[in-house]
Design a protein around this nucleic acid. Structure first.
Length: 484
DNA sequence: GAACTCACG
DNA sequence: ACGTACGTGAGTTCT
């Protein structure tokens, strides 16, 4: 929606200041459909470039207060210094767009249609009749009444048929596996392969997403219409969808990922000596935690042990419970509890950080990130223990996820500035939480790689991080190949 | 429009 | 005793 607006030829000559005001209009909009509705600020366009710039600067100063007043629904939003300078950069990204291989997706659609037709017949045979596989209700009837399989979990309205359930049911019957495959193909076809080409802009021939700065509670961006932050990255068909994200002739796609950004922030915030040492030495974090958790030298760490350690670290960042970890790893709760206990023994400062975050959240009503971004967590004051649990996990996770969002926002500002000065033909075309994507003319490639890596990693020092930041680069003619 | 499911970091 | 990992957006079905 916003992208459409910015692409309107009648508005192309408007100054960035005007665009910033437009973005403020979006930011102050109320709901999903309403986001581009003009609010009073939206109308502030004096017709004079200087006056408009002045108004924008004034708004930038007032903004935290404005936001606080206008979103006064128990959720106070305060904005740090990164959001305003990011506004024209997001507008740039939206205007640039991502080139899509529409013909390739059309081919893929036909293949998927054939596969789905075949699977539908085979599923009908196994189920003893045709039914709508996309209907969880009808599927539950087939699985749990017709075939008599044992339901595992309930939803509000009936028995669950989600991926986790079907994976477990697969040991009893052949049907669940086929359903899983059918579902995943159907998802890819409807959400991506068929939907994306419809959203290509008729003039630019590109996909222009909208990047929202006011949706995610932690300070992350979100992406809509289309969401380009959840393009598939796994499986044969998923990878073929990524192949459809391409660059024009004479260009390369450059992808730059922060490596292990959240564990690095965990190390910084906790100041845990072992974690700090792992990153200072450039060691493999998951191997290192596996060695600590299992008490074994690296030579004796198996792939499964490393995978378990990786899951434990994720769990810590999310505010873990032994139950959740045991579900995720498929091990008994007693075992997952041992992993967690041992982790906290070896990385004691991490537990202290979690306790600190929860205590701060409870006392102040909000948590904070590296740049001072606040997230209100009223759940911590709830009388309901389950709700408090929810709040505690938010209090553990928000400073980490939110600080990562801070870092990449600063990186975007720095990279954008340097590109403008040194490589004006390089376009930033997407951000996916810990990853920036650029469209680069062939002759700029080597310099762009150097610049992007240097600026992204440089944010660590700039913000006083106690760990080095590491950026992995990938280059190619499409997103599948270029993804590091 | 709610509920369910599943795509991503 | 109880529910159970953080943050998103979108397509489909059904009420």
């Amino acid at each position: 929606m916003i992208a459409d607006y910015l692409l309107n030829p009648n508005r192309r000559d408007h100054s960035l200041d005007t665009i910033m005001l437009e973005r403020l209009g979006e930011r102050l909009g109320s709901g999903k459909q309403e986001k581009a509705q003009p609010q009073s600020l939206f109308e502030v366009d004096t017709g004079s470039r200087e006056e408009t710039a002045e108004a924008a600067a004034a708004l930038a100063k007032l903004e935290p207060i404005l936001i606080e007043r206008l979103t006064d629904q128990g959720s106070v939003k305060l904005f740090t210094d990164v959001e305003m300078p990011l506004v024209p950069i997001l507008a740039d990204i939206e205007r640039n767009g991502f080139l899509l291989d529409v013909d390739g997706l059309h081919e893929l659609s036909k293949e998927l249609e054939r596969d789905l037709d075949q699977m539908m017949a085979s599923i009908a045979a196994l189920a003893g009749g045709e039914f709508n596989i996309n209907s969880p209700k009808q599927l539950a009837t087939v699985l749990f009444e017709k075939l008599g399989l044992k339901p595992l979990r309930k939803t509000k309205t009936g028995y669950s048929t989600d991926e986790d359930t079907l994976t477990q049911l697969a040991t009893q019957h052949e049907l669940p596996n086929q359903i899983l495959t059918y579902r995943s193909l159907s998802k890819l076809k409807s959400t991506y392969v068929d939907a994306l080409p419809e959203l290509v802009h008729p003039e630019t021939k590109r996909l222009h997403t909208s990047l929202n700065q006011t949706v995610a509670a932690t300070g992350r961006l979100s992406s809509t219409d289309p969401n380009l932050q959840n393009i598939p990255v796994k499986g044969d068909y998923g990878l073929r969808i990524r192949e459809a994200f391409v660059v024009p002739k004479g260009h390369e796609l450059l992808c730059a990922d922060y490596s292990q950004i959240e564990p690095r922030i965990l190390a910084h915030l906790s100041q845990d000596p072992r974690l700090l040492s792992v990153f200072a030495k450039g060691e493999d974090i998951h191997m290192a935690t596996a060695m600590e958790i299992f008490g074994l030298p690296s030579s004796q760490i198996t792939r499964d042990m490393r995978r378990a350690a990786k899951t434990v670290v994720f769990g810590i960042v999310y505010g873990i419970s032994p139950f959740g970890l045991s579900q995720n790893l498929g091990v008994p709760q007693a075992e997952s509890k041992k992993y967690i206990d041992t982790f906290f023994e070896r990385f004691a400062a991490v537990r202290a950080l979690m306790d600190r975050n929860i205590a701060e959240g409870r006392e102040k009503g909000y948590t904070t990130t590296i740049l001072g971004r606040r997230r209100p967590i009223p759940e911590l004051q709830s009388g309901d223990p389950a709700q408090r649990g929810v709040g505690e996990r938010m209090a553990v996770n928000s400073p980490i996820q939110g600080s990562a969002a801070d870092l990449i926002k600063v990186a975007m500002i720095n990279v954008h500035k340097k590109l403008h000065e040194e490589l004006p033909h390089v376009k930033m075309i997407l951000q996916v939480h810990d990853e920036l994507i650029f469209e680069v003319p062939d002759h700029d490639l080597e310099e762009a790689k150097r610049l992007v890596k240097q600026e992204m990693e440089g944010v660590g020092k700039q913000l006083g991080l106690s760990v080095p930041l590491k950026v992995d680069l990938g280059v190619g003619k499409n997103w599948r190949v270029a993804h590091p």
